[in-house]
């Protein structure tokens, strides 16, 4: 994960990251997560893919379902938590 601060500059990415930090056990689709964070599904989908690329989230993909969960790499989680505290 290169630059969390840059990620957090995008409002949807920030909301999604805060959501997963608060609910780290959650596994959900873009549509589901868009309900939890109160943002448009397509924007959430874009944010989710960006966060997967950055290593903050994991993508669980099957032929019929595309789901996302928080990273289980504890070093990344700690890094995210440090940044969130300073928000």
């Amino acid at each position: 994960m290169k630059n969390i601060k840059t990620i957090l500059k995008n409002e949807t990415q920030k909301k999604v990251l805060l959501f997963f930090n608060e609910n780290p056990h959650c596994i959900d689709t873009a549509k589901g997560i868009s309900v939890w964070v109160g943002c448009d599904t397509s924007a959430v989908k874009k944010a989710l893919n960006k966060l997967v690329k950055e290593g903050a989230l994991i993508n669980h993909r099957t032929a019929s379902t595309d789901a996302y969960s928080y990273t289980n790499q504890r070093a990344i989680v700690k890094k995210i938590e440090r940044c969130i505290k300073n928000l």
Binding site: N23, H25, C26, I27, D28, T29, G32, W36, H60, T62, A63, S64, T65, A67
Partner: peptide, 16 residues
């Protein structure tokens, strides 16, 4: 959120 997670897991598991 937990219920939605379980539902998503069900979808992920039943796809194989």
């Amino acid at each position: 959120i937990a219920l939605s997670t379980i539902h998503t897991i069900h979808r992920l598991l039943s796809s194989t």
